[in-house]
Design a protein around this nucleic acid. Sequence first.
DNA 1: TTCTATATTGAACGCTTTGTATATTATTAT
DNA 2: ATAATAATATACAAAGCGTTCAATATAGAA
Lengths: 183, 183
Amino acid sequence: MDRRQRKTREAIFTAFIKLLSKKDFGRITVGEIIEQADIGRATFYSHFETKDFLLKELCEELFCHIFDAMNNEHSNHHHIFDCDAPNSVFLHLFQHLKKNDNNILELLSCQNNELFLWYFKNNLQKLAVSQLPMFKNRKSDILPDSFWINHIASTFVETVRWWIDNGMKQSPETITEYFYSVV
Amino acid sequence: MDRRQRKTREAIFTAFIKLLSKKDFGRITVGEIIEQADIGRATFYSHFETKDFLLKELCEELFCHIFDAMNNEHSNHHHIFDCDAPNSVFLHLFQHLKKNDNNILELLSCQNNELFLWYFKNNLQKLAVSQLPMFKNRKSDILPDSFWINHIASTFVETVRWWIDNGMKQSPETITEYFYSVV
DNA sequence: TTCTATATTGAACGCTTTGTATATTATTAT
DNA sequence: ATAATAATATACAAAGCGTTCAATATAGAA
């Protein structure tokens, strides 16, 4: 790949991530990206068909790097991950996130849309507060309340999503069972 | 409220929900809404400042109705929810969703943005597949594998979100503990 | 019914953003 | 040194946004 192409591509990605950390994807304009990246308008469009394709390629590149890196570490230090602790894979991911290798945190923390789910979760959290003692009795642990509340609400939302995606074949009772057996 | 206002407002909401069930929020134009609702352009803007405010008000109205209705049922049949089953609140929500009272399913199932989280979850699910036997050994139950996989991935994402929102004070090890104690 | 207030309408407007086209300049790889 | 190609500035049509305004239609009260 031409050095010029590489530099331009990198400049666009960098500018895009910087903008994503500040504002919602939908509110970022191509004009802002090319201004931040300091490139010409036509140049942008010779690299990416649209703004959406830019996001798509950014995601692919990012996750490809991270998860491939993890898999490689697996095969290299095979013994560690097989024998030592069964949870080290996730611990590893958390550690990568803490280091914030690829500005993933900016992408995760930015207020990316989903106003609807925000409302849904917010209301569910209020509900979860009143139900909290019930859950805490089942398992005795030292989790912060806010974590519990968030987890209950999130699991509910995700259960509903899974339900819908799988054609809602299960009865509400069955889904409730599912929900309770993981929460 | 003037009858004309009510009718117009209802027409806008109905048109908006119909469009939301077909396409992403960001791709819906005001022109499409007013065409679907069969109202004048100026009328739309006399009701809602922008498209975003329309979504906001729709969410508020929707969740207000649903959760208020649930709370009322609570106070009316107080005995049922206090004595009978501790999980009936959530069962109730699932039942409401199954009936699809307010077209909530369309709103939940539509591909509302979040391409980034989609990629994140997708990669985590692949990871979860390989870790699945580990989790299933701990609890013996009859949950579908796809549900388990989705739950593990979702809980991870939501744990990260909670972590970020609370300032990332915890160490990766602690967060991993949190994650495993709920999963 | 009549009257007054007000909601709706359609058209026009300036503005921003989008994606494309083109002619010119600069850089690369060989 | 040269041929290929990437980047540039500029201009452009098309689409969407949000506003304005005069004309019309309807609601609710007397």
